[in-house]
Simulated scan of single mutants.
Amino acid sequence: MSDVKKVNPFVKLALELGPIVVFFIAYGRMKDQTFAYNGTDYNGFIVVTALFVPLLALTTFILYRLTGKLSAMQIMTLLIVVVFGGLSVWFNDERFFKMKPTMIYLLFAGMLGFGLMRGQSYLQLVMDEAMPLKHEGWMILTKRITLFFLALAVANEVVWRTMSTDAWVNFKVFGLTAAVFAFFMTQGKLMQKYAIEEDEV
């Protein structure tokens, strides 16, 4: 028996996407403002980052309380957000937070790549219940996602290093989300080909 509790999918989606939506809205309202605290000036991006980190921690905790489980990716994402968001606020330097997606995607790609070298799909361990595939299908999908994560890491580095903060925020909120959605939409044939039928279970 699984200890994972069922939760309304809309509630789950709101908890997962809520923090980034709040970040985007708050940044739009505060990006041109400067806030003085304890003799130091902080721009709107840093202040919004300082709000985003505890908000993500709170929604992740609520998600855990509702479902009884967090994936390794959710835990690692939260840790990286706390570390790099905290560094941005502590040093008053937005570059740390902008590097966060790069670190997350490199970490995920590294974990999945390590599993592939061992002949295993760590992705299968996380998603097998939601998307049952044959082992060969999981290996192919894992290879593709590993390369995809590497491409996203490179794209994030290019954007934050060469474009404005406004451009990076739009890329983070809309570009990366659209890229992930488009990637999985293009994997439909693979999922159909290697899907496990009910009579095979």
Rank of each mutant, 00 (worst) to 15 (best):
M191E: 03
V82E: 06
A178L: 15
E16V: 14
I25R: 15
T67C: 12
K69C: 01
L152N: 12
G110S: 01
P9Q: 00
A155Q: 09
V82R: 01
E157L: 14
T59V: 04
Y64C: 12
R95N: 12
W168S: 06
G28E: 08
F23A: 11
E157M: 14
Q74M: 10
T34A: 06
D128I: 02
N38L: 09
I145T: 14
V4P: 06
V159F: 01
G175K: 10
L141N: 00
Q124S: 03
V7N: 10
S121M: 05
P101N: 08
L17N: 13
K5G: 15
L55C: 13
F84T: 03
W168C: 09
M127K: 04
F171R: 09
H135F: 07
Y105S: 11
T146R: 03
L190E: 00
V159D: 04
Q74D: 13
A178N: 13
G115H: 02
E157P: 06
T165M: 11
V169M: 05
Y64L: 14
K98T: 07
Y27A: 02
V48D: 08
A167I: 15
N8C: 08
F84H: 08
M127T: 04
I80C: 01
Q124I: 01
F35G: 07
V173F: 15
L55N: 12
K189I: 05
T102H: 06
T142V: 02
R29T: 13
F96G: 02
M191L: 10
T165P: 05
R65A: 15
K31S: 09
T60I: 06
S164Y: 07
V201G: 09
I80Y: 01
V4I: 15
M111C: 04
Y42V: 12
Y42M: 12
K31I: 02
S88C: 10
F114L: 04
F148E: 07
T59E: 04
L141S: 00
F84M: 13
P101L: 06
W168K: 08
Y105V: 03
F108Y: 06
N43F: 04
S164V: 07
Y42R: 10
L87F: 14
M73L: 14
L58E: 07
D3F: 13
F35D: 09
F23R: 08
V180E: 12
T60D: 06
L176H: 02
D32V: 08
D41C: 06
L51F: 15
D166A: 13
G18P: 11
L125G: 04
I25F: 15
A57L: 12
V48I: 13
F183H: 11
V83K: 03
F96W: 11
H135I: 03
R144S: 02
L15I: 13
E198Y: 11
M185P: 00
G110L: 00
F91Q: 14
D3N: 15
T186S: 11
K69E: 07
L141H: 00
G18H: 10
Y105P: 05
A151H: 02
T165W: 05
P132F: 01
L116W: 01
T162P: 14
W160E: 03
K143H: 13
L78E: 08
T40N: 12
